[in-house]
């Protein structure tokens, strides 16, 4: 064996090719195949009406999943999404014109709802980074706090949103495109720019890829980790407001199911849960797959609960497959 054999053994050249295919091309192919399949299987799938409803369904999931992508790239996780959405939706509705109190802050209420999410993100980030608690544990706790706050605000009956111009944001459309979808596109654009051009975006990849090296290079990692959590919280806040706009009420269970679906969307898009690999763009594909799948399966009459089970399996399979080549005999993964 010559030394060059040892040197040129950069690990997993073939694997990288495979990952590149399934990481970027694969999900897109899957999406096209799914659309084609459901168009053939159901006469209603490829119609204008269903297209619009697909877009609406996609919008909120996309915003949640985009936010989640930022912490998953760090190699962390945010389980507080549903609680944050619940709190945000209620803060928003209770500050806008509603049937519960005399408040009528209009667009300021939207900002308050979104900021509620940002605050949760800040809390998550600070607790995780400065007290060194694993992120899933922190966010398990803060998620419960979010649900709790929402429950307190909820007070037994869902407050209804009475502001007509805001309600139009939820129900209306612009040139056939639902306004919620336009909001989602704006969020996506901003997220893409943040990920490509800002320190929090770029350092996120480096932290997720190799935190030890980042530390040695003297970068204030903590700041960028906290900022990433703030981005995720903010996105959850936006999603909470969007969900309230869509339903016309603030509700404790308004985020129900989004956590799971969003994690699946991020993972399906090709962002690895170990961190360092992936991106917001991929999450768009992943979220689209999930939305098409959910919509299409219902159209062809599949029990929606089976989907929950399938999503669970997808998460397990995704981590198992991406991590398979890293297995070693002596390795401690908790």
């Amino acid at each position: 064996m010559s030394r060059s054999d040892l040197v040129s053994s950069a690990p997993g050249v073939d694997l990288r090719k495979i990952q590149r295919l399934f990481g970027t091309g694969g999900p897109l192919v899957a999406l096209v195949v799914l659309v084609a399949f459901f168009s053939l299987a159901s006469s209603t799938f490829f119609t204008l009406g269903n297209g619009s409803s697909l877009l609406t369904q996609l919008s909120i999931l996309l915003v949640v999943a985009i936010g989640l992508t930022f912490v998953i790239i760090l190699g962390s996780l945010d389980l507080s999404i549903e609680g944050v959405m619940a709190s945000s939706s209620l803060v928003f509705v209770l500050l806008a014109a509603n049937d519960r109190n005399d408040s009528d802050l209009g667009f300021l209420a939207v900002i308050a709802g979104v900021l509620t999410g940002s605050l949760f993100g800040l809390l998550n980030g600070v607790l995780h980074v400065h007290l060194k608690i694993p992120s899933f544990m922190v966010t398990l706790g803060t998620g419960a706090i979010g649900i709790g706050i929402a429950t307190v605000l909820f007070g037994g009956r869902a407050p209804r949103l009475m502001d007509d111009s805001l309600r139009d944001l939820g129900f209306g459309s612009l040139g056939g495109i639902p306004k919620l979808a336009i909001i989602a596109v704006i969020v996506l654009t901003i997220a893409l720019l943040v990920q490509r051009f800002t320190r929090v975006g770029r350092y996120g990849y480096a932290i997720g890829g190799d935190e030890q090296v980042m530390k040695l290079s003297g970068v204030n990692i903590n700041r960028y980790k906290v900022l990433s959590f703030v981005l995720t919280g903010t996105a959850s806040g936006i999603a909470g407001v969007m969900a309230a706009l869509q339903l016309g009420v603030g509700d404790v269970t308004i985020g129900g199911g989004y956590l799971f679906t969003a994690i699946t969307a991020v993972v399906l898009g090709g962002t690895a849960l170990v961190g360092g690999i992936g991106g917001v763009g991929r999450t768009l594909v992943g979220a689209a797959i999930i939305t098409v799948l959910a919509n299409g399966l219902i159209l062809i009459g599949v029990n929606p609960y089976v989907q929950v089970a399938v999503q669970g399996l997808v998460i397990v399979l995704a981590v198992a497959v991406t991590g398979w080549s890293l297995r070693k005999r002596v390795r401690a993964i908790k």
């Binding site: 996780l77 399996l313 998460i315 397990v316 981590v319 991590g323 993964i333």
Partner: peptide
């Protein structure tokens, strides 16, 4: 799954949570 695939338990069990919940609902 956790031991053989060597993946973090919180992710595997998060997935398992969806799986068994889906099974129970179905």
């Amino acid at each position: 799954v956790v031991a053989v695939a060597q993946v973090p338990s919180f992710i595997v069990t998060l997935g398992a949570m969806g799986l068994w919940s889906g099974v129970a609902l179905t």
